[in-house]
Nucleic acid binder design. Structure first.
Length: 549
RNA sequence: GCCCUCGUAGCACAAUGGAUAGUGCAGCUCACUCCUAACGAGCCGAUCCAGGUUCGACUCCUGGCGAGGGCACCA
């Protein structure tokens, strides 16, 4: 419908000689202003030097003619807005589609045929997953699904850190304690904290850890490599468990250790071409003239940094995962780093760099102060999940309900905010399960599902209301919102829409008797349309939908 | 010192250069023998400061104040 209106506006503008005007068709902030609004007259009036109200009047007439029976009213308001109110028939048609299409309702085709390689969550083996990792996992999964909903084929991968100084720190502490069979992520997390502390406080330990780091790269010490292998597996098991709880499954788990060598080679080749240069024994990318940070790619010890490994990964991905587009999701503290990596990649492989984009998620900050895995005061992903499950259980102890409610609460808190913004989280107060929240959306859907389960095949009451219900006018916008959220990589747009949808449904539910009413048949169709919309919207964000609450 | 984000009610967040700046929490009313109250109806309350651009600025520009992050061998 939005497309139809856009075309009508475009044609009307062209007729006035302002075909190039950059107008928007949007949903007005207030329902009283209709179903759609456009600023086309105000934008074009500027270009043409005309009075916006007069231009709006003539545009409105053309738009009304073009849309015919789809519109009830096209009116001009304020400084020159053209407001469009759909006819009851057009609203009814949209609701019937939402009802009939089921899971297909709201699926788009904007990205049909496009293969998108998504990288997110990027765990550091040998470090526990803390709350910050939840952000990347949740946002990455939601973006993947949004693009999937827009027709793209998604291939998920995660790029874990399994070599480098941080790994050496954990292994050093494990060795010191004589551990040969690490058995929990917690144990490894503590070893990492102990190793980090020793690295700073103890000069001898500092040297040992640096040497250990070299040994890991070299890979010749069989006992060490076995411990490394086992430690990594224990860490990854913990990460996989959390991913499963969060509804994420990766097609590829890639590691630093897979890309270090190729990264070094690439930087070496780049050095010959003058893309990189030597400085104090290290190989760096001098980004100053390009406006990005200068960074070390190969250390003076000859080991590749994460930057070099990222370059290696870009090439490895091209081999393993054919794609048209690459999206990498990380915390926003890495934004500057990625600018440098992409600038360097742009010189090594312009076509790869051109289709690669970096998306930053915000930081999960605690009101109680900073977390540090070195200090050992981290809150892990599992800690938050378990706390939420406990709280959800107060209302419904069934784990089949409490778990998805907890996951929904967490995910919604993250996804409702504009991407890249930090989230302030108060571990004392924890998460709200009421008001604007995941459970609010889930509950609205549960109510609708329950209502529908009571209805019989031969619904009575064939009357129709004089005007469509407010919730219907929200439902009909779902496909546009989902498409825009995918286009702008902005899950929060869909999240706020679903909030509004749930609110409209709950108001309808509170004020209208459905079963046994004169409009029963009509209202049940609205309920089915709502349920499909909410279910599809939650699915597109990766938020689970419990059957009961 | 340089670079990047950000600053909206007591708190947490929305708002493509558009209409009376939206929502939730907290507080105060109201509503519950009726399809699930993790619900509904209402009240209270905000754009950091100073300039500028514009018919129109939370949004863009300049300066200031404040917060967070990044800036050579960590990831």
């Amino acid at each position: 419908m939005e497309e139809k209106i856009r075309t009508a506006v475009q044609d009307a503008l062209a007729h006035e000689g302002a075909g190039a005007a950059a107008f928007v068709v949007e949903r007005p902030g207030e329902a009283a202003h209709g179903d759609y609004t456009t600023n086309a007259a105000m934008v074009a009036a500027k270009q043409l030097g005309q009075n916006p109200r007069e231009l709006a009047d003539s545009l409105a007439r053309r738009i009304q003619d073009a849309l015919g029976a789809d519109v009830e009213r096209v009116s001009v308001a304020g400084p020159g807005f053209i407001n469009i109110t759909l006819s009851n028939a057009a609203v009814g048609f949209a609701i019937a589609e939402a009802d009939a299409q089921g899971e297909a309702w709201g699926k788009g085709s904007a990205l049909s045929g496009q293969r998108v390689s998504f990288e997110y969550s990027n765990p550091n083996a040998f470090k526990e997953m803390h709350v910050g990792h939840l952000m990347g996992t949740i946002v990455g999964e939601a973006l993947s699904r949004l693009l999937e909903n827009a027709g793209a084929k998604i291939i998920r991968d995660t790029f874990g850190g399994d070599v480098g100084p941080n790994v050496a720190k954990a292994l050093w502490a494990l060795k010191k304690d004589g551990v040969t069979e690490p058995d929990s992520a917690k144990q490894i997390g503590e070893a990492y904290a102990a190793g980090s502390k020793a690295y700073e406080d103890d000069a001898a330990a500092h040297e040992q850890i640096d040497a250990l780091n070299q040994d890991i790269y070299a890979g010749n010490d069989a006992a060490l490599m076995e411990l490394w292998q086992k430690g990594r597996e224990v860490s990854m098991r913990a990460f996989r468990h959390l991913w499963q709880r969060l509804g994420t499954k990766f097609d590829y788990e890639l590691f630093d250790s897979d890309t270090g060598e190729s990264g070094k080679r690439l930087v070496g080749d780049g050095l010959k071409k003058g893309i990189f240069k030597e400085s104090d024994g290290a190989i760096i990318y001098d980004g100053e003239e390009k406006g990005v940070h200068t960074m070390v790619f190969i250390t003076s010890h000859g080991t590749p940094t994460y930057e070099a490994k990222d370059l290696g990964l870009a090439f490895l991905r091209e081999e393993k995962i054919p794609n048209d587009r690459v999206i990498i999701v990380t915390g926003n503290e890495q934004t500057g780093r990625f600018k440098t990596v992409l600038a360097a990649l742009g010189e090594l492989a312009p076509n790869v760099a051109a289709k690669t984009e970096h998306v930053a998620t915000g930081f999960l900050r605690l009101t109680s102060g900073k977390m540090s895995s070195r200090e050992g005061n981290v809150i892990t992903g599992e800690d938050i999940m378990n706390d939420l499950v406990a709280r959800a259980s107060e209302k419904n102890p069934d784990p089949l309900i409490a778990e998805p409610v907890a996951v929904g609460a967490l995910k919604f808190m993250v996804l409702r905010q504009a991407p890249g913004q930090d989230i302030v989280f108060d571990p004392g107060k924890s998460l709200s399960l009421e008001g604007d929240s995941g459970p609010y959306l889930q509950y609205a859907l549960v109510r609708a599902a329950k209502l529908l389960s009571y209805s019989s095949e031969d619904a009575g009451g064939g009357e129709a209301p004089r005007e469509p219900y407010a919730v219907e006018r929200v439902i009909l916008h779902y496909p546009e919102v989902a498409a825009r959220a995918a286009r702008e990589l902005a899950p929060n747009l869909l999240a706020s829409y679903l909030l509004e949808l749930a609110s409209a449904w709950n108001a309808f539910y509170a004020s209208e008797q459905v079963l046994g009413s004169p409009e029963e048949e009509y209202k049940l169709r609205v309920a089915r349309a709502f349920a499909n919309t909410m279910a599809n919207g939650l699915h597109a964000l990766g938020i689970p939908a419990p059957e009961r609450m």
